[in-house]
C-alpha cells in the first residue's frame, strides 16, 4: 500500500489542496475507485476508507493477484468537504462536470485534468457517487450508455440492480462518461446515503467491489465472490416509474428505497403544514421495488417523491 499525491493546488490562506490516491500492487492499471468528488459525499468517503483498510488486509495476506495495480481515491474535494459545501467552494462548479478537464483552463478544469491524467488507462473504473435529488436509493450499479459498456460485467458486483442510462448533454462532463470515451469499463455504484454514513450499505458497497475484483481475477482465495451468486435485474432508466407530488407540505414517507410495493399501496402522506390535515396521499401506480425515495420531511409540488422499478 502506497499513498501518493496525484495533484496539488495552492490556495490563499489555506494549506495546499492535495488529491491523494492509495495504491496496491504493481503492474497493469486494473481498477481505480473514486470516492467523493463532491464535498457532501461523506458516505462515499467512508466507503473508500473502509475499502482501503480491507484491501490493505488482503494485500498483507498475499491475496492480491500479481501484476495488477489498484488505486483508490477517497476524496477529490477536501477543499469543499471541510467547509460543508457540495461543489467547489470558490465558484460552486462541479468537478464531476469538468472531465476530461483542461490543464490550461479554470481551476476545476485543471483539477479534473490533473486527476484524469492518472485515471486514464485503467481497465475498470468505479465511481461511488450521489444524485442531485435529495433522497435514498436502493443500492445499484449505474452504467451510462456512452458506447463502451458491458452490462454483463456489472453483474459481478452482486448488487440487485444494474441500470443503464442515456447520457444527457451535461453528463458528457462526468468522470464515467470520459472513462468510457478512453475505453475504461466504468461503473457508478450508488449506495443508500450521501451526506450521512449508513454503515450497512457501506459494507455492502465494499463487498460489491471485492466481489467484482474476485470475478475479474484481481483477488485470490475464497470469500470475496459470494455476492455474485445473485443475478441482478437489468433495466433501462427510462423504465422507472416516477411518482410526483402535486402538493407541498409536510412529507411523511410510508415506504423506503428497497421496499416491495403493490399497485395502490400508500407511499407517503403530505400534510398541510399549518393544520395537519392530509393534503395528498401518494400511492404506487404499479407493483415493483422502490428505487428512490425523497428523504426530506418537507416536499413541494411536482417533486420526484418516489421512483419504482416496475415488475415485468
Amino acid at each position: 500500500m502506497q499513498r501518493e499525491t496525484l495533484f496539488t493546488i495552492n490556495t490563499i490562506y489555506r494549506e495546499p489542496l492535495h488529491i491523494d490516491g492509495i495504491f496496491f500492487g504493481e503492474g497493469e492499471k486494473a481498477l481505480a475507485v473514486v470516492g467523493a468528488l463532491r464535498g457532501n459525499e461523506v458516505q462515499q468517503l467512508y466507503i473508500c476508507s473502509q475499502l482501503v483498510k480491507a484491501l490493505g488486509e488482503r494485500e498483507r495476506a498475499g491475496r492480491l493477484a500479481p501484476g495488477c495495480r489498484v488505486g483508490v481515491i477517497p476524496c477529490v474535494n477536501p477543499f469543499s468537504m471541510n467547509l460543508g459545501k457540495r461543489f467547489w467552494a470558490a465558484d460552486n462548479t462541479d468537478i464531476n462536470r469538468m472531465f476530461p478537464g483542461y490543464a490550461q483552463g479554470e481551476t476545476t478544469q485543471r483539477i479534473a485534468a490533473g486527476l484524469f491524467a492518472h485515471l486514464r488507462g485503467y481497465k475498470y473504473g468505479v465511481q461511488l457517487t450521489s444524485f442531485h435529488l435529495s433522497g435514498d436509493f436502493t443500492p445499484h450499479v449505474r452504467i451510462i450508455d456512452a458506447g463502451y459498456h458491458d452490462l454483463g460485467l456489472a453483474d459481478s458486483f452482486g448488487l440487485p440492480f444494474v441500470m443503464l442510462g442515456k447520457p444527457s448533454p451535461i453528463d458528457t462532463g462526468t468522470l464515467n462518461y470520459n472513462w468510457q470515451v478512453f475505453e475504461t469499463n466504468a461503473f457508478s455504484v450508488y449506495s443508500k446515503e450521501t451526506s450521512q454514513i449508513h454503515e450497512e450499505s457501506a459494507r455492502r458497497a465494499v463487498e460489491a467491489i471485492f466481489s467484482f475484483m474476485a470475478a475479474q481475477g484481481m483477488l485470490r482465495g475464497v470469500g470475496d465472490a459470494d455476492g455474485a451468486r445473485q443475478r441482478p435485474r437489468h433495466f433501462h432508466e427510462e423504465n422507472l416509474v416516477t411518482v410526483l407530488s402535486s402538493q407541498g407540505g409536510i412529507f411523511l414517507p410510508r415506504r423506503a428505497a428497497g421496499d416491495r410495493v403493490e399497485a395502490g399501496d400508500a407511499l407517503a402522506d403530505t400534510l398541510d403544514p399549518y393544520v395537519g390535515e392530509m393534503k395528498e396521499r401518494l400511492t404506487a401506480p404499479r407493483a415493483g421495488i422502490v428505487f428512490f425515495n425523497h428523504d426530506s420531511n418537507l416536499v413541494g409540488g411536482h417533486e420526484v417523491a418516489f421512483r419504482i422499478i416496475p415488475d415485468l
Binding site: Q247, G248, G249, I250, F251, P273, L298, V299, H302
Partner: peptide, 11 residues
C-alpha cells in the same frame, strides 16, 4: 408554478 412546502407557491 409549483407549490413550495410551507404556505407559498413558486411562480
Amino acid at each position: 408554478s409549483a407549490q413550495l412546502p410551507v404556505g407559498e407557491s413558486l411562480r
